[in-house]
């Protein structure tokens, strides 16, 4: 009996995906500073928006507190999924470990699957913590949104994955110098995601862009829901379809970036 499973077997594929998940879990466990990224900034944002709503209400501005805080909680899923996916990839670049991984039998799909699974767990955990905190502080949490919160979060996390995969592709395609993109890509989409205001307030061109962004359908849905209009299933379906298109495009771009990097020798440069 050989020491390894047959390379194409299901057992081997599961092992390789599990190897990536383990790498990410160990790295999180060994780097306490990352908890700051994952919890501190979102908590800070939550507190700031809490005060903003308190101030607005004190001045009799009619404002749906649940909407603002709900939006903060949900947008967190997009931003974290994107940034964490980029982060776990960049860690291998910084450690000069990337070539060791790619010199092994793992496929691009398995590599991504492992990271994506880890990030899904992380986003779930951090959303739960934030939501609990919001519930304690302001009496509003993900639970206020009701069962629709689950599909909302799935679609938003999916968008974060898509953007994270694009960020990885950009770094592979254009080199380590472009890594700042990896930290701001989700933020660049926020103006078009209708997080804090409806799509209708945007100028026409921006509206066209906004309707192509999965998150804007979720946040429009959230506003409708909190206004008592029920769940907009058509909007959710559109968002899910846009997610699928985004993810397919992102993976295709990453595969292209990797082919390009193998041809130009850029991949090999990640060893320097």
């Amino acid at each position: 009996m050989t020491v390894a499973y047959d390379v194409a077997s299901g057992a081997a594929r599961r092992r390789r995906v599990a190897g990536i998940v383990r790498r990410d879990v160990y790295a999180l466990h060994r780097n306490g500073g990352r908890l700051l990224d994952i919890f501190f900034w979102p908590v800070l944002e939550l507190v700031i928006w809490g005060f903003v709503t308190a101030f607005l209400r004190a001045n009799n501005v009619p404002i749906a507190v649940s909407m603002l805080l709900g939006a903060v909680l949900l947008w967190h899923a997009v931003a974290r999924a994107q940034a964490e996916l980029a982060m776990v990839f960049m860690q291998d670049v910084w450690s000069r470990n990337l070539l060791n991984v790619f010199a092994g039998p793992i496929s691009l799909g398995e590599f991504l699957a492992g990271h994506v699974i880890f990030v899904a767990g992380l986003v779930t955990a951090s959303t739960a913590v934030l939501s609990t905190l919001a519930l304690l502080l302001y009496g509003i949490g993900v639970t206020t949104i009701g069962p629709a919160a689950v599909p909302f979060l799935v679609v938003l996390t999916g968008m974060g994955w898509g953007l994270g995969i694009i960020a990885i592709g950009i770094v592979i395609r254009f080199g380590e110098g472009t890594q700042s993109v990896a930290w701001v890509l989700a933020a660049a989409f926020q103006p078009f995601a209708a997080v804090f205001y409806p799509v209708a307030v945007l100028p026409p061109v921006a509206q066209a862009i906004a309707w192509a962004v999965p998150a804007s359908h979720v946040f429009e849905g959230l506003r409708g829901l909190l206004a008592g209009h029920g769940i907009d299933w058509a909007g959710l379906a559109t968002a899910a379809a846009l997610d699928v298109a985004l993810l397919a495009g992102a993976v295709a771009f990453l595969a292209h970036a990797l082919r390009h990097a193998r041809r130009t020798g850029r991949l090999s440069k990640f060893g320097e």
Partner: peptide, 15 residues
């Protein structure tokens, strides 16, 4: 931990 990760990446039966 490093070696355990690679034992998985090479799909070893008994990491």
């Amino acid at each position: 931990e490093v070696l355990t990760v690679y034992a998985h990446l090479y799909a070893l039966r008994r990491p």
